[in-house]
Simulated assay, not measured.
Amino acid sequence: MIVYGLSTCDTCRKALKSLPDATLFDVRDRGFPKGLLTRALAAFGSALINTRSTTWRSLPESERTRPALELLNDHPALMKRPLIDDDGTLHLGWTPEVRQALGAA
């Protein structure tokens, strides 16, 4: 299981603590693996972009209107976190529904 997020994100840390077999893939440091964003955008659409983030609020309006794929590649911290790949099944966020689906406490 792979948790895509940021090493500094409290929510990602909570997910990792509850998923002992998971590993963190820091998208700010390493970028996104090829094809991951396309799959995630197909699954979650605009929900993949965290419009409540400081990064989003600091972007000029001209940046915000760019295609989501380009925006996320240029600003990985905009991704709602965590994005969890459980053997090919993607989960977004750390909601009670995601925790239940993953068997986490």
Rank of each mutant, 00 (worst) to 15 (best):
A15I: 08
T55F: 04
L71V: 04
V3D: 01
T54D: 00
M1H: 14
C12T: 02
D29Q: 15
A47N: 13
A104K: 07
G45I: 01
T23C: 07
L90Y: 02
G5V: 03
D29C: 12
E61C: 06
V27A: 13
K17R: 10
A77G: 02
R57S: 11
T54W: 01
D21L: 06
K17V: 01
A40F: 13
S7W: 12
R39I: 04
D29W: 14
P96S: 11
H75I: 06
R66P: 14
P33E: 09
T23F: 02
D29K: 15
A68P: 11
G31H: 05
I84Q: 05
L71P: 05
R64V: 05
F32E: 04
P67F: 12
G88K: 06
L19A: 09
L16I: 00
L16K: 12
A42Y: 11
N50E: 02
P60H: 15
D74Y: 00
A47H: 13
I49N: 11
S58C: 09
A47G: 11
E97L: 13
L37N: 10
P96T: 12
L102P: 03
S7L: 10
S62N: 13
L102W: 04
C9I: 02
A105N: 15
A40K: 09
T11K: 01
L90Q: 03
L71I: 05
W94K: 07
L19E: 03
I2W: 07
R13A: 04
R64E: 03
C9G: 02
G45C: 08
C9L: 08
L102Q: 08
N73L: 13
L83R: 00
G31R: 05
L48G: 07
H75D: 00
E61K: 00
D10L: 04
L36T: 12
